[in-house]
Design a protein around this nucleic acid. Structure first.
Length: 433
RNA sequence: UCCGGAGUAGCUCAAUGGCAGAGCAAUCGGCUGUUAACCGAUGGGUUGAAGGUUCGAGCCCUUCCUCCGGAGCCA
C-alpha cells in the first residue's frame, strides 16, 4: 500500500511508490498521455498518466477530471525529464474523490479584483494567495519569536472597549447589554498598565477602524502588534522598532524564499533592511518634501500617502521620522523637554512607498501634564481615571509602538493592496465572504 | 462625504446611432512529453436598473445602484 505523501515532501521519495491527494489544478492531454496537475497546499505535482501504464477505465477517467476535483493519485516519484530538480508522478492509479458540483468559477486566465474578492474563499487556493498566506503566517510567528525571545510577556488587550480611547479615530459601535461599547482601535493604553505589571509587555490582535477610508492601505479590521516597555525612552523605542523590522525581514528571507519567488518579490530590497535605520526629524521630513515636488509643505502638515512615498523613496531601508508637532498627535505622547511643542514620537515609513507601518513613542508620565492634555483634547476625564492611576501609583517613563501586520505583509511581499494580505478582508464595501 | 473611471456571455474585454463579437472557461472530437499546451467543432446575451431623445440606442440625455482608483480620515 502506497504511503500518503504531501507534495512538498515528494523529493524525499524519488523512485518510490507513493500516494498523493489533492485538487486538480490543470489537465493537459495528448491522446495517449494525460498530464494531471495536482495541488495539495504544500505544492503542485504533475502526474503523468500514460495509456499503457494504467487500466483503460483509469485512463479515460483521468482525462475527464474537472478543475478543482479532489483526486488520489498513486504512482512512482521520478524527476521531470525536461526540468531537473522538479519531480513528477508516474501514475499507476487515479481515483476521483469528489467531482465539482458545478463549474469552478476561477479559470486560469485573468480576473477582475471584485470578482476575485467575491470568490475569496476559492481565490485562496491560487499559488500567489497561498504564498501570501504563508508569508503572513511567518511574519506572525516572527513577531512572537522576537518579543518572546526578548523577555516580553504577551498580555491580551480587550476587543470591547467602553470609550473612544484616543479620540482620534472613528470606531465601530456595538450594543453591550444595553450600554454602548466600541471595538478596540488600539490596545496601547492597556499595555501601559501591563508594562507596570510585567515590565515588557506586548499585545497582538485584531483592531478596528470605522473611518470610510478607501485606499490600498486601509482595512476596517486589521491586526496590530503593540509592545510597551517600562523605563524605555524614545531612543530605546526607535532601537526596538528597527531591530524588530530587521528581524522580520531576515526571517522571511531565510524561510520563505520560494514564496517570495512566486510573488516575484525583489528580495534585494528586503536584504537592505538592516538596523540601524536612517532617522530624520519631522522638520527634516518637511524639508525633504519641499525640495522634492511639494513646495507647499509646511510645518504643521501631516503626511498623506504621496508625501510618505516621497520621503521613503529618499532611503533604501525603512526610515524613522520623529518629533512631530504635538498638535498632530494623540494626547498621551510626552512632550520633548528640549522643545515642548514637539512630541517624543516616531513613525517608521516602509520603503518603496508602502507608507507608515509603525507608529509610537514615549508616553507622558507626569500626572498633571497628562490631565491637561486630556482637557486640551476635550476627552471625558472620567473614562481615563484608571489610566491616570498608572501615573498616580508609581509613575514611570515608558514607550512603545504599534505595527500594522497587513501593511508589513504588503511591503514584505511587494503587494499593491492590503486586501490580499489578510485571508478575508473587511473593508468599506466588503463584509463577505 | 468629495473628485475621477468602469459596468456587454461563467471570466477578461471589443463593437462610427444601423445584423451583439473575440479570447479563455464549458461540452464533443484529434494528438506519446504537455507546462495559462495545441488543433477542429458546438452551445452560451433582459448590454447594471428605470425613464427619455430617435425611424432605430450597448452607444446620446436624466436619475439611481454597484464596483475600482484617489482625496479627506487613519495604521
Amino acid at each position: 500500500m502506497a504511503e500518503h505523501v504531501w507534495i512538498g515532501d515528494l523529493r524525499e521519495h524519488v523512485g518510490k511508490d507513493v500516494e498523493v491527494r489533492g485538487w486538480r489544478n490543470h489537465l493537459r492531454s495528448s491522446g495517449k498521455l494525460h498530464f494531471l496537475e495536482v495541488r495539495d497546499g504544500t505544492g503542485t505535482v504533475q502526474a503523468v498518466v500514460f495509456k499503457g501504464s494504467v487500466t483503460p477505465e483509469t485512463f479515460e477517467k483521468a482525462g475527464t477530471i474537472a478543475q478543482e476535483a479532489t483526486v488520489t493519485v498513486r504512482g512512482t516519484v521520478s524527476e521531470n525529464p525536461k526540468k531537473p530538480g522538479v519531480f513528477e508522478l508516474q501514475a499507476k492509479e487515479v481515483e476521483l474523490y469528489a467531482a465539482p458540483a458545478r463549474e469552478y468559477p476561477i479559470s486560469p486566465k485573468e480576473h477582475g479584483v471584485d470578482f476575485l474578492m467575491d470568490n475569496r474563499h476559492l481565490w485562496l487556493r491560487s499559488s500567489r494567495q497561498n504564498a501570501i498566506l504563508k508569508v503572513r503566517a511567518t511574519i506572525v510567528r516572527a513577531v512572537r519569536d522576537f518579543f518572546d525571545g526578548r523577555g516580553f510577556t504577551l498580555v491580551d488587550a480587550p476587543i470591547f472597549t467602553p470609550n473612544a480611547c484616543e479620540g482620534t479615530s472613528t470606531l465601530f459601535e456595538t450594543d453591550y447589554h444595553g450600554d454602548k461599547a466600541y471595538l478596540t482601535q488600539s490596545g496601547q493604553l492597556y499595555m501601559e498598565a501591563a508594562a507596570a505589571a510585567v515590565g515588557k509587555a506586548y499585545c497582538f490582535g485584531p483592531t478596528f477602524r470605522a473611518e470610510k477610508s478607501k485606499t490600498r492601505r486601509h482595512l476596517a479590521e486589521f491586526w496590530m502588534v503593540e509592545p510597551e516597555v517600562a523605563f524605555m525612552d524614545l531612543e530605546g523605542d526607535m532601537k526596538l522598532a528597527e531591530d524588530f523590522l530587521a528581524f522580520i525581514a531576515q526571517r522571511v528571507l531565510e524561510t520563505r524564499g520560494e514564496e517570495l519567488k512566486i510573488l516575484e518579490r525583489d528580495t534585494s530590497k528586503l536584504e537592505k533592511v538592516i538596523a540601524p535605520f536612517p532617522r530624520i526629524t519631522y522638520h527634516e521630513a518637511i524639508q525633504i518634501l519641499q525640495e522634492n515636488g511639494h513646495p507647499e509643505a509646511k510645518v504643521g502638515d501631516d503626511f498623506g500617502g504621496d508625501e510618505e512615498t516621497v520621503i521613503s523613496n529618499k532611503f533604501d531601508r525603512p526610515v524613522i521620522v520623529h518629533r512631530y508637532p504635538m498638535e498632530l498627535k494623540a494626547f498621551y505622547f510626552k512632550k520633548d523637554p528640549a522643545n515642548p511643542s514637539l512630541a517624543l514620537n516616531m513613525d517608521v515609513l516602509a520603503p518603496e512607498g508602502y507608507g507608515e507601518i509603525i507608529g509610537g513613542g514615549q508616553r507622558e508620565d507626569d500626572l498633571d501634564t497628562l490631565v491637561r492634555a486630556i482637557e486640551h483634547h476635550k476627552l471625558p476625564m472620567e473614562a481615563f481615571e484608571w489610566y491616570l492611576d498608572l501615573r498616580r501609583y508609581g509613575s514611570f517613563p515608558h514607550a512603545g509602538f504599534g505595527l500594522g501586520i497587513e501593511r508589513t505583509v504588503a511591503w514584505t511581499c511587494g503587494l499593491h493592496h492590503v486586501r490580499e494580505t489578510i485571508p478575508f478582508a473587511r473593508m468599506l464595501n466588503r463584509l463577505s465572504p
